[in-house]
Design a protein around this nucleic acid. Structure first.
Lengths: 140, 140
DNA sequence: TTAAATTGAATTGTATAAAATCTAATCTTA
DNA sequence: TAAGATTAGATTTTATACAATTCAATTTAA
């Protein structure tokens, strides 16, 4: 009973569950992130900075797979709130360096609580999570 | 060498590769969809309609995991382009029924070519794809 | 060495997403 | 049956995403 339109059924597509699952998980972060008044994208941006403290917009974009169209306004917002500073590199004026402030670093403690809380909502075994992780990185 | 901030590293998170992979795959559709002047969200909306022909906004939202805030403007756009009609149900005026037009249905042939083209960009074996599929639906 | 190419961000324009609120229609039930 | 609750969409607001373009700084090459 196959026909050439079967590939057009959502249930036969890998792209759709990927797209839907990603949004569900981001949504899962919302209640916890909103207490810190952070969005998911702001949160993962800060994750890079909590680990590296000072990075260029380009490096941030590479790590997050986001471009300047997304990052520029987001970073301006984080600067306005005092969590980061934005300053041009002295050795190359094209490069904008993003650096975490004390205030930005201070968010780390509250943020460190979140992954465990969200993770417990998704009932994957550690083995399943590891498998999923590997397959996703294969796509990226 | 573990510390309590290790959970805040992108590489230790499942949410991030999920989020990034989803966007990569959607981006993989872009070159093919833009030839049909469709976005990814419009495409999956049409996928539901190609299979079911006539559904309410509510059912569309449940199948796609999207709400009226996303669907309302999207559907108005598809209506304007003549691919669907929007009409209130006669038995319940709250319900808006979306129905595929001939023009909308005609897109199906070109669209049916796309999944194979995109799929070949992602080098997962059929077994890996099946595993990924199952894990993603577990999250959804 | 300077014109051309490249690079890193910013900007512009369009299309999502999702929370929150609103409105009209329908249902429930005291 | 009429008030209150619920439901289905629409609207509003805010924040992404990303393609495409622009601009200034830097690098490359003829």
């Amino acid at each position: 009973m196959d026909n050439k339109y079967d590939v057009l059924k959502l249930e036969n597509q890998l792209c759709f569950p990927l797209y839907a699952a990603a949004r569900e998980v981001v949504k899962g972060y919302h209640p916890y992130l909103s207490k810190l008044d952070l969005t998911y994208t702001q949160y993962i941006t800060l994750m890079v900075l909590w680990e590296h403290r000072k990075v260029s917009v380009k490096e941030l974009g590479e790590r997050l797979h986001l471009d300047s169209g997304t990052l520029t306004p987001l970073l301006k917002g984080l600067e306005k709130r005092g969590y980061i500073t934005r300053r041009r590199s002295e050795s190359d004026e094209r490069v904008l360096l993003i650096e975490l402030t004390e205030e930005g670093d201070a968010l780390k403690d509250a943020a460190a609580e979140i992954p465990a809380k969200v993770g417990s909502c998704f009932k994957l075994t550690p083995e399943e999570a590891a498998t999923l992780y590997k397959l996703l990185y294969k796509i990226i």
